[in-house]
């Protein structure tokens, strides 16, 4: 055995073709050209389609970043693996959505430009994705329950989108997010119907997440027009299903539906219009720092 083979890093480096350096932060979906360059559906405005892809992509991107904060902090190893897997699924969805947004807007920005080089007002995610849960496990589960229930209802309908990329991301995502929702629901049962301590903390966590629900069902102007073109899903139409599913879980978990008013808007504007809580800036600081410090780095 040569000295090179003895060294794990050398051996690994040896398998990498010098013509194929790996971009350190993403890997590019140029190879998906056939999918990503599909024509914008009739009746849809390209700029609005790009914005819609950013909405759904940023929800997944920012929330996946918050989920990864649990790596090395989860209560048990299996849970750490689970949360990392869920984050990875969402990151995968985000990559395709951002790549599609970049193609449709036609400003020569790829998924990495959009993820790492936009500033806070250019993000289109809902506020639910933004705050740190401060490594409170009940909060992590409460947010996962709400996010996955809402996203599953949305993706389920989006499979019929006139945009082939949105339809493909949705068809794939439905299978993944079904697992995410089941995972959150079972933890909610275990904690809610557990000890007095776990019940109280799960109830507190629900109260923490509840103000974010209102925004999930607010329809933005671009969404309204894209719904008419058969491209987007109207979030207002998800309200009853999402509350029905969450209600089923809370009932079995002996938890009480919080009676807390939803977070307000600022002059009618919210995350979909680029108006965010300061928590997003904190998330982006961490998420974007490496790519900004080493632009174009590859390994």
């Amino acid at each position: 055995m040569s000295a090179d083979e003895d060294n794990a890093y050398q051996a690994l480096a040896g398998t990498i073709d010098q013509d194929d350096p790996r971009w350190a932060f993403g890997s590019g979906f140029e190879d998906m050209e056939a999918d990503l360059t599909a024509a914008v559906p009739d009746g849809a405005d390209p700029a609005e389609l790009a914005e819609y892809c950013l909405m759904l992509g940023d929800d997944a991107l920012v929330y996946s970043h918050r989920l990864t904060e649990w790596v090395s902090h989860a209560p048990e190893l299996e849970e750490e693996v689970a949360l990392a897997n869920i984050a990875l699924d969402l990151l995968g969805q985000a990559r395709v959505l951002l790549a599609r947004a970049g193609h449709v807007e036609g400003k020569d920005r790829d998924e990495d430009d959009l993820a790492y080089w936009r500033e806070v007002p250019a993000f289109r995610n809902v506020a639910l994705a933004e705050p740190s849960d401060d490594l409170d496990f009940a909060r992590a589960i409460a947010r996962l329950l709400v996010f996955s229930t809402w996203r599953l209802a949305l993706l389920h309908r989006l499979q019929d989108s006139a945009d082939p990329v949105l339809a493909a991301v949705a068809a794939k995502g439905v299978k993944e997010v079904t697992y995410h929702r089941d995972h959150a629901a079972r933890w909610t049962l275990r904690l809610g119907d557990g000890t007095a301590e776990s019940h109280g903390r799960m109830q507190d966590a629900l109260e923490w997440v509840w103000p974010f629900l209102g925004e999930l069902f607010r329809t933005s102007d671009p969404e309204r027009r894209l719904v008419a073109a058969g491209v987007a899903v109207d979030p207002a139409g998800l309200h009853d299903e999402v509350h029905e599913v969450i209600g089923q879980v809370l009932a079995r978990a002996t938890l009480t539906r919080p009676d807390i008013p939803e977070m307000g808007t600022i002059g009618g504007l919210g995350g979909r219009q680029g108006v965010h809580t300061e928590k997003l800036e904190h998330a982006l600081d961490a998420m974007q720092s490496l790519a900004r410090k080493h632009p174009g780095a590859s390994w």
């Binding site: 979906f29 190879d31 998906m32 056939a34 339809a167 794939k172």
Partner: peptide, 11 residues
């Protein structure tokens, strides 16, 4: 050339 497609979704 190796291309990736998402649709129909793998099962």
């Amino acid at each position: 050339e190796v291309r990736t497609v998402f649709s129909p979704a793998w099962s």
